[in-house]
Design a protein around this nucleic acid. Structure first.
Lengths: 210, 210
DNA sequence: CTATTTCTGGTACGACGTACGAGAATTGCG
DNA sequence: CGCAATTCTCGTACGTCGTACCAGAAATAG
């Protein structure tokens, strides 16, 4: 068995290389040629392991999903769903490209399915329908991505922007903005856990009420 | 005055053409050559009106922002902030590319500043610091984008995915997922207003408590 | 008229994803 | 052993993108 020329690499090597590049240089630096160079192969050889780049990103997402801390369920849906969200947040902080990569993904990987499974299990005590549970999970994932994106962006205003904004404010058309700029205070980091607790429990409570 | 060859177009024409393409064919179809063709110009002529494509997208975002329904403030921050969010949601539904275009934008346009101004005014009665107010506005914008994205995605599972998921489920490793698939019911559309009310109010309440 | 300024758009370059196909490396069969 | 069948490798090449460059066109100022 195992006829034909033996593969010089593996799918996992390809995906791992891609993740490494994304982690250190951002998602934009992940190109077929760059990955190939990383593992010492020709660009076209990658297509032996992966049908196209879009699927490769799917695999990247699923693979980092495998490193997520699994949640031990308590049976209280509030606690459990928040734990799932917190676990997902850690993952996104470890791989900053993840929030940007998530949109338009196919959820076919086993680790993504495991994530769904975990969320469904957490929501089991609510007695909600499966479809609603899935919708809640999608929303929670989106909310976490939003929070993490805000967290990562921090408040780093580019000088160019400050100049333009200052100019616009000088016209007097934006009094609120003017006084905020005059304040100039640094924004305290919002507490993810508390924000998540409120928004996520709110989500589920709404579903239960309707 | 007005020396030199007169411009054959205007920035507004360029931006409007780009928005038209994005509205009908998606953000991916917006390319310099395509826009140029649309207004009957050479691709390179666009660079007379816009420094580069990234700034053009900034201008697109700001221009559609100008069509947003302005909110009449009541003085109650809950009502007013939710009204701002609802107005932003309508905008995103009218321009489905907006949620995808929003990340990494420069907030230099007057309409974006007007949006911030409106949000700040809505939050004025809370007495929160300017920095925190801005952070809340950013989060609200992100939440609305998340909800709209979920809304637009609907539940349209691709057959290919269903097959792969069914296969994985058949292993018995995902019991929750299995029973959801067996259910097969269609998910009721989540009610944006109620979700927004809960999550956004929660956001501000948290800020007030800390 | 001429010099100056400004906009136009063809050509071209270096990225990108990837189709194609010749060559290399392996196994199975005679 | 030789030879077909199979499978992976990767150089070349095409069509796309954003956009640098620059010669030419069209206007005004003197």
């Amino acid at each position: 068995m195992a006829r034909g020329r033996p593969p010089a690499h593996t799918v996992d090597q390809v995906v791992a290389a891609a993740i490494g590049i994304a982690d250190t240089e951002g998602l934009g630096a992940v190109t077929m040629r760059r990955i190939a160079q990383q593992i010492g192969a020709g660009a076209m050889s990658l297509y032996t392991y992966v049908p196209d780049k879009d699927r490769l990103v799917d695999l990247m997402v699923d693979r980092v999903g495998g490193t997520r801390t699994l949640v031990v369920l308590t049976g209280d849906w509030r606690t459990d769903l928040l734990a799932v969200a917190a676990s997902q947040r850690s993952l996104m902080l470890a791989h900053r490209w993840l929030p940007a990569a998530l949109p338009n993904r196919r959820l076919t990987g086993r680790n993504m399915l495991a994530y769904l499974e975990e969320g469904l299990a957490a929501l089991e005590p609510t007695g909600l329908s499966g479809a609603v549970k899935l919708e809640i999970i999608a929303l929670v994932t989106g909310l976490v991505a939003t929070f993490v994106t805000a967290e990562l962006a921090g408040s780093a205003p580019v000088p160019e922007q400050v100049a333009l904004i200052g100019e616009a404010v000088a016209t007097g058309d934006f009094p609120q903005l003017a006084s905020v700029l005059a304040e100039g205070g640094q924004g305290a980091e919002p507490d993810f856990d508390r924000l998540a607790a409120w928004t996520i429990t709110g989500l589920v409570t709404q579903a239960l009420d309707s």
